[in-house]
Amino acid sequence: MRKLLALVALLGLGLAQSLLVEVKGSLEEVEAKTLAALRSVGLEADRVLNLGEQVRQVTGPGFPEYRLVVLKPDKGSIEAVSKNPMAAIVLPPTVFITGQGNSFRVGAFDGRLLFSMLQVYGGEVERLVWRLEAALGRLGIVKRLPPAMMPDPSSGMMPALMYRVPSAKVEDVVLMVEAELTSNGLNLLPNVKVGPVTVIMPCKSEWARIMFLTQPAGGFAAPCRFFALQMGNDVLVGAIEPMLMTIMPGVMGTPAVAMLQEARQVMSQILEATGGTPYRPGR
């Protein structure tokens, strides 16, 4: 992983973290256009989440309109997690819609960067990336938002926090994680199967408010992803590494960093509550 991160850095920042397109119209019109564009390339919405309203109900006014379109798992998502379970940190893909009045930004992650880092790019995974890009391209001119910096290969930071739970069943671990998330005040969506991986999608309104007011394009990773996978007699359980978001433009030096540190602590405690031990691939 360290060699790969170094390689990605050397390739230059022509690769982007997020893809963005500006779309004119009301929120309802832009949402309808987005869903139609996704359908036109063979991608189907599993659910549309009104994150903006949820956040405003909890934290008060001042948060923009924010919709999350969570896609149904497709062959690309299944192939990605089958090659590397860490790909579940952004799967199934989320397309975000955010803005005010008559102007909105629609975006998603740039799989060319992330999936290359995870060594799963190619085949159906590559076709998934093409379809996401094509869908956004039907809405307007696609802009690429490059990271402000790349992960430091010497830091040892991985895209996911992971633990291995010995002598366990994935169904039991999923229930345990969901119970811990709920007791920590996170809202939960029904979990979804992506090939061999169960993906759990929680959200905390206070975290969302701080993160997306700082960098709206972070919505490609929302709702937050936890995941679990049976590995023989054990279970691999993990979650997206919140500090990964600090490489996005405009995040460092803001209150979002403290929020991400808090999120990391809570998420690590939830994973530790499963009885697992820290896990790194290849060790």
Rank of each mutant, 00 (worst) to 15 (best):
D172Q: 14
D152P: 05
I247P: 00
V235E: 02
P281M: 13
F115T: 05
P64S: 13
E241C: 12
M149Y: 14
L19W: 06
T277I: 14
R39T: 07
F212C: 00
A258E: 04
A135P: 04
L91Q: 09
R144S: 12
M149S: 12
T198P: 07
L260P: 01
P216M: 04
T34G: 03
R47G: 03
V125L: 04
L15G: 09
A9C: 09
M1H: 15
F227H: 10
V23S: 00
G62V: 13
M231P: 05
R164G: 06
K193G: 10
L189N: 06
V70A: 06
E180N: 08
A179K: 08
R280V: 12
L7R: 05
L43E: 03
P190C: 14
F226H: 08
L188E: 04
S18E: 07
A168S: 13
P278L: 10
P216W: 11
L49A: 00
P85N: 02
A228P: 00
G25S: 09
M117N: 02
T98K: 11
V197I: 06
K72E: 11
L188T: 10
G275E: 10
A87S: 05
P190H: 12
T277M: 14
V173H: 00
F220R: 12
L181Q: 02
L51Q: 04
P216Q: 12
E180K: 07
Q269C: 14
M259F: 09
E180W: 09
L213W: 07
L189P: 07
Y163V: 07
V120R: 01
V41P: 04
A208F: 06
P202A: 03
P146E: 02
K24Y: 15
C203T: 14
P249C: 10
M201I: 04
P147C: 02
A32N: 03
E241L: 15
L186P: 03
E79Q: 12
I97H: 02
A37W: 09
V106E: 00
L38W: 04
G122H: 03
G282R: 14
L181D: 00
L38N: 05
